[in-house]
Design a protein around this nucleic acid. Structure first.
Length: 882
RNA sequence: GGGAGCAUAGCUCAGUUGGUUCAGAGCGUCUGCCUUACAAGCAGAGGGUCGGGGGUUCGACUCCCUCUGCUCCCACCA
């Protein structure tokens, strides 16, 4: 195989991905092995891959590939989410661009357009995931609106309805006037918003609907809703307003008479202490209205415009109306003053429209019992959140959860299976046929034509909460008593879920609820919550800022392996990651390093007659131990989901230990062959290293592994077992480290003295140096001879210490005695101070009495080492002074 | 308003029940090298009073209090 000096990922990556697919390596079927299951957080069906997906799916893929190499039956189920609001608004926009208005076409026509759109754009994001190397079982690809998954959603609705958990009613909901639908509490984002605080004069009525000259001042942020006022409310404790009792107040501009009511809800210290009560357009006011039996007058329509009930400004948008009514109030003498005011305003998560609290008929799911169980699942540790800090947030939400508004006034989604009889009664059944039967039980004369199905669809999350169940078994959701099918029985519960904390409640919590309800078990064991990918300035990546790189461009430029590694190097659970292209560059550079190490090794020719050089023997023995030690550390990182630590540990093992030390030590002289024993060992190490790197960089490792040795047809690194950590001898590693320190010291001396690496030097050793590692020093520091000495007296050289061993490089004529002396004296000074601090500790009786033995022993060792160093330094100084 | 979290090297972050010569890593920086795997590289070096203050302890980056600055989540004060 021809190997260029630079690795080019493009063809390699496409080649191996296609080959993996062809061989169905990602495909999983239940068998006797332990399963390892992951379901993808389904991206929006019309979505495009962004950096957040890269982070999430790379993490997922690392976990899946690792599990697969641990011998588990790994199954990663991919799929997409129909994302009702997001998709519907995209389709509406597309139709609008074509001159078609949603209002002018039928539901069926609209859905035809929507499906067309889905077919056209639906596969994009999944194909992008393939470029990233995601090892999903594509044969299992699901879509939340697949017919059978939709059926599961409907069955679930029917199940909860019959259980009494689903009810229909007129409630104050969060209305999105742009999306034209209700949204759940979780889909409302509150943001502090600068607005105005209008102080309005409401005049007292003379009893006949005419204003007197007395008035009170009411502060409001929404003057455009005054026409819907049903009362003015004061706190019963508020003495300032006792004179108002029994009086009537006139609404400005329309002179409508409304009563004064008292309710302790009103804060006396806030605003003017008078509250206008507008039950139709404010959640709190609605509650007050209920308590006081106030009429509800809804003056705002679906689009957020004033309707005819407002009497004035009819047809105006609510914000336009606000501006205009300010002028009208001013002219009418009702405007006392206007102040700037900052208050939290609710925005729609999807459309960013200001949410209009609005009364409407909606379907709700009771959450109390579901939340209780779901809380327990996390509190008991059956589901672990990583990082753990999210437990608090989770608990708080679960303890304060409100009923879930599950109906949406949209067409794209699962239509609510409620069927209305002409008299207004309704039945809930999974199919029209069953509904007809049920309806006929109520009224035998009913025909199919009489029944009208509810127009609304279900919240998207009402389908995605079934995901870990319904991707395997579409019957079980909605039928807790049913036997799970073979797949569900085998794969459920899934193992790990990787997702963002922003959907902890939308999705994660609700999946736990559905799992409890239908499986009597949690849907996953561990939830790894990623952070948000930001740019290097800490800003959220967004289209408008243009700070979000296209992952596919990055892959084209650096290779998928490079992109993956760049992401993994800087991710830690729960922390946002500040993404910078230089990290991907680092990933690419690592690929190149691996590539070149391979080139080096492949360039060697084995000399069967050659015996193993000492340095190589030391290196092999050391690396064997180092490898085992590192495997143990990496395994520990994986077990704690410290993915970036795991890859960094492997990265350093490869780059620093394997390349910088090991390969340099075993590298044969130019033109010479390598002995067979060393070559075999090197191959073995390379094999292990490739396997360790594979979960992070699947492509290049497959490419090199295939070329490392002859492979049988269909053999892949993907399915090799990850090497297991064996026993290792720590002293081998520390001895080698000392040799390395000596090498670094000599190299440093060369640098300081301007000596070429080619110029051989000699080395004097005084003290207990692990002599069997000396070949390392000789080879890598270019030392021609090493002598053990008892003293450096009479030697003109540069000395240094490795731990407690003193060493010197004789350098006749190059040594500045004064400099040397100063260096030694500084070292002595430091050492003496260090000794003093150690002795201070040791002479402290309370320390000796209270500290654990081990800690005291360490201090004694420090003392002894320090004494020995001081002795050496003093001797060296004395020798130098002679 | 309630809750959670963060502050350690120029940057991004580790530091796992308070105690290994513990103040670390990666990147960046500086110096010297095109050394026959790799300049996407090699070798070497510098860099932090662990946000400020106080306390507990024989001992604090680690525990407690407080101040400052930032972030996030939740929330119906018009």
């Amino acid at each position: 195989m021809e190997l260029p000096a630079k690795y080019s990922p493009a063809e390699v990556e496409d080649k191996w991905y296609a080959w993996w697919l062809k061989n169905k390596f990602f495909h999983s079927e239940p068998d006797g092995r332990e399963p390892y299951t992951v379901v993808i957080p389904p991206p929006n069906v019309t979505g495009i891959l962004h950096m957040g997906h890269v982070l999430n799916n790379t993490l997922n893929d690392v976990l899946v590939r690792k599990a697969r190499m641990d011998g588990k039956n790994a199954c990663w189920v991919p799929g997409t989410d129909h994302a009702s609001i997001a998709t519907e608004s995209k389709v509406v926009a597309k139709l609008k661009a074509e001159g078609i208005s949603k209002e002018d076409i039928t539901r069926e026509e609209f859905l035809r357009h929507a499906w067309e759109w889905k077919e056209k754009h639906g596969g994009i994001i999944l194909s992008q995931l393939r470029k990233l190397g995601a090892s999903c079982d594509w044969d299992r690809t699901k879509f939340t609106m697949d017919p059978d998954l939709s059926e599961a959603v409907i069955n679930t609705f029917v199940y909860f309805y019959k259980k009494g958990y689903i009810y229909r009613g007129i409630r104050m909901v969060n209305w999105d006037p742009v999306g034209l639908t209700a949204v759940s509490d979780e889909e409302v984002i509150h943001r502090d918003t600068v607005s105005k605080f209008y102080h309005l004069r409401y005049f007292i009525s003379d009893g006949n609907g005419n204003p007197t000259d007395k008035y009170i001042i009411i502060a409001t942020t929404r003057p455009e809703t005054i026409m819907a006022d049903a009362a003015v409310c004061i706190n019963p404790e508020d003495e300032r307003y006792h004179w108002l009792k029994g009086k009537k107040i006139l609404i400005p501009l329309i002179n409508k008479e409304i009563p004064i009511i008292e309710d302790s809800y009103v804060e006396m210290g806030f605003g003017t202490g008078c509250l206008k009560v507008t039950p139709a357009h404010d959640v709190n006011d609605y509650e007050i209205g209920l308590r006081h039996n106030l009429p509800v007058l809804d003056i705002i329509d679906d689009h957020g415009r004033l309707n005819e009930k407002a009497q004035i400004l009819v047809g105006e948008d609510r914000f336009e109306a606000r501006k205009k009514i300010e002028v009208m109030l001013q002219e009418a003498g009702n405007l006392e003053k206007v102040e700037d005011y900052t208050s939290p305003v609710g925005y729609s998560e999807r459309t960013n429209a200001v949410i209009e609290p609005r009364l409407s008929m909606q379907w709700f799911l009771k959450m109390e019992d579901l939340a209780k169980e779901a809380l327990e699942s996390v509190e008991s540790g059956k589901v672990k959140l990583i990082p753990d800090k999210y437990r608090n947030t989770y608990r708080h939400w679960m303890e304060n959860v409100r009923d879930w508004c599950i109906s949406r006034q949209l067409w794209w989604g699962q239509r609510i299976p409620a069927y209305y009889l002409p008299d207004g009664r309704f039945v809930v059944e999974a199919t029209a046929e069953e509904a007809l039967k049920a309806a006929q039980a109520l009224d035998p004369k009913i025909t199919a034509a009489d029944l009208k199905q509810d127009e609304d669809v279900l919240d998207t999350w009402f389908s995605s909460w079934l995901w870990p169940i319904s991707v395997f078994d579409t019957h079980k959701a909605g039928h807790p008593e049913a036997q799970p099918n073979k797949d569900l029985a085998y794969y459920y519960p899934t193992n790990d879920l990787v997702t963002g904390p922003d959907i902890l409640f939308f999705w994660v919590a609700r999946m736990i609820m559905a799992g409890d309800e239908f499986m009597h078990d949690v849907p996953f064991r561990n939830v790894y919550l990623t952070g948000i990918v930001r740019d290097k300035l800490g800003r959220k990546m967004s289209k408008t800022l243009g700070n979000s790189p296209d992952p596919l461009d990055l892959i084209a430029k650096y290779g998928a392996d490079g992109v993956r590694l760049g992401m993994m190097l800087c991710t830690s659970a729960g922390n946002d990651i500040l993404f910078d292209e230089s990290q991907v560059e680092q990933g690419r550079n690592f690929c190149n390093k691996v590539w070149n190490a391979f080139r080096l090794m492949k360039g060697w020719t084995v000399d069967e007659k050659a015996s193993q050089p000492e340095a190589a023997a030391v290196a092999v023995r050391w690396f064997e131990n180092k490898l085992d030690m590192t495997l143990e550390a990496v395994e520990d990182h994986y077990s704690k989901f410290r993915i970036s630590d795991a890859i960094m540990t492997v990265y350093k093992l490869f780059w620093d230990d394997f390349c910088a030390w090991y390969l340099e030590l075993v590298k044969p002289a130019y033109g010479a062959g390598i002995d067979a024993a060393t070559y075999k060992a090197t191959e073995r190490f390379f094999d292990a290293l490739l396997k360790m790197i594979h979960p992070f960089m699947p492509f290049i490792t497959e490419e090199l592994w295939q070329n490392l040795a002859p492979r049988k047809e269909g053999e892949t690194i993907m399915l090799q077992r990850m090497p297991l950590a064996g026993e290792y001898d720590r002293s081998v590693i520390t001895d080698f480290d000392m040799a390395c320190e000596a090498v670094v010291a000599v190299r440093s001396i060369r640098q300081q003295k301007g000596l070429s690496p080619k110029e051989a030097l000699t080395l004097l050793v005084k003290g207990a140096f692990p002599m069997d590692t000396l070949p390392v020093v000789r080879k890598l520091a270019n030392i021609s001879s090493v002598s053990k000495v008892d003293s450096f007296e009479g030697v003109s050289g540069v000395s240094f210490m490795v731990r407690t061993v003193e060493m010197s490089v004789p350098l006749e004529g190059l040594v500045n005695a004064e400099e040397e002396l100063a260096k030694l004296e500084a070292a002595l000074d430091y050492q003496e101070k260090f000794l003093a601090s150690v002795r201070k500790k040791l002479s402290n009786e309370r320390f000796v009495a209270n500290a654990p033995e081990q800690v005291v022993a360490v201090e004694r060792k420090k003392e002894a080492d320090s004494l020995s160093k001081i002795e050496s330094l003093k001797a060296a100084i004395a020798a130098l002074k002679k």
